[in-house]
Write a protein that binds this DNA or RNA. Structure first.
Lengths: 266, 266
DNA sequence: AAACGATGTTTCACACAATAAAACATTGAG
DNA sequence: CTCAATGTTTTATTGTGTGAAACATCGTTT
């Protein structure tokens, strides 16, 4: 492989590595950090000094150990939980769309509704499906059902105590059957639906895990059932699960592995 | 003034400045950022490139504009709201303690209780008062009452519908009088109490404002009433208000002004 | 359609600033 | 009291961050 142009500026990259190390394990000293990152003490010292002046790291009153600083919190709050998820998902959604040529949706739950955080339009379907920013029901749609399945029991109860609108003849409105469906989703770790929200549409949804290990969103591949055969079922499912895993990893405190970005296209 | 040794490493500092600029105004392009920060386009480009590879900035799919990246969110979440507040307050609390020689307490509300996030022990009082991590009531104590005063009306109602323990003969347990007291706190913008939680103790509390403008915590100067005269009342109040303002500014999206750290000791 | 202007991208050479090594200061333990 | 480990400071050299300017790639205007 050819060298892909490296515009990275080393000092900055090292500083960011330092922040990651402190996020991973707080309350570390200069020596410890230098050792674990393969830097010299003096370098780490000066990096910390720079970061501290801007509040990106904070030192213990006892003047010994460092942790992430308040400014990280302020900036992080600025972008919000949805922002982090959205930006982490962006390149992965692009890749998933390219891989499947179908629509890709990123959905979160908000109370007893779902909310489409972002979408990618597949090559085919023109006027189809999800619009970013739109609310949807919890009891129909691939991603929605999946989110409901992993929601707190009290949320499930609340959702099931509402009237369940039938969007198509295939929408599950029977509460017992719905509970069964949720059970199966949890058992499978994914969800595949056909025609239950939009007639003629399929959806293959996988769960995204936040930094705390709970399921916070779903990513789904959706398109016209006409293009949905057994083979695509398998490939789309694998692609969705992989994408969900990748996003989840990005959102974990340890961050993405070696590969800085999404896997290279074959 | 003598030059205070500058260990700052320029590249890193500029990168952080870039992050701040993006937090201040998202969706900016290379040129815009370069102009507003007084950097060259090529530098900004490379900084952004470095930051992007680690997920600290994110670019629009349309390949034009940049914003803060998901990693900021992940790291920020890691430290939590309390962490940001705590670290922002740390040096200010130290300064306030040095200035007043009294105890300094940082208190937040959690439901119908208060929670001492951090303390600094004054020169005098040995075995006195607040312990970090301890819960306290909402209706007694300088910081607590102040937090109650600025809490949501529903919280006030809930707090007042509970039994109001009398910790000393001076504790306000009459609901009407308590509401009056809260009213006066809001009118003043601060709170001063004597003997209401601990016999023989005073407390001068000021409100801390979060990034969204709401009051999220209180910082207070506390000590023995024996040392509390009219002059100290004024000076402690001013010191507490200044400290609260300083912390609030740090927590604001625009960040602290020119002076990177706390004001120099006189 | 062609020319323009603005923006993002790339190249390149030089100065200065980031870096490593090593000396120094400070702290705590045995 | 000595020793070991840590944070801090200095210094010299090299490498790298930097600015200027060329280039590409748009979208807009005439």
């Amino acid at each position: 492989m050819t060298e892909p142009k490296d515009y990275k500026i080393a000092a900055v990259d090292r500083a960011l590595a330092l922040l990651e190390a402190l996020a991973d394990r707080p309350d570390q000293g200069v020596t410890s950090l230098a050792k674990s990152l393969g830097m010299t003490k003096s370098l780490v010292f000066r990096l910390l000094h720079t970061l501290e002046e801007r509040g990106f790291v904070s030192r213990d009153p006892e003047r010994a150990e460092f942790s992430l600083g308040y400014r990280i919190g302020v900036l992080g709050e600025r972008l919000g939980k949805d922002g982090a998820l959205l930006y982490a998902a962006r390149p992965v959604m692009d890749a998933l769309r390219d891989q499947t040529s179908e629509n890709v949706n990123l959905v979160v739950r908000e109370g007893l509704k779902t909310y489409v955080l972002a979408t990618r339009a597949g090559r085919h379907s023109i006027r189809l499906f999800a619009q970013a920013g739109r609310n949807g029901p919890l009891h129909a749609g691939g991603g929605s059902l999946l989110l409901l399945a992993y929601a707190d029991p009290s949320v499930i109860d609340a959702a099931l105590s509402q009237p369940l609108e039938a969007f198509t003849p295939y929408t599950i409105t029977d509460r017992a059957k719905l509970r069964q469906a949720l059970e199966r989703i949890r058992a499978n770790g994914y969800n595949i639906v056909l025609n239950d929200l939009d007639e003629g549409a399929f959806s293959v949804a996988a769960p995204i895990t936040g930094a705390d290990g709970t399921i916070i969103a779903s990513i789904s591949v959706a398109g016209a059932v006409a293009r949905f055969d057994e083979e695509r079922r398998e490939s789309h499912l694998k692609a969705a699960l992989d994408a969900a895993a990748e996003i989840s990893e990005r959102l974990s405190i340890h961050g993405p592995g070696e590969n800085g970005l999404v896997k290279s296209r074959a």
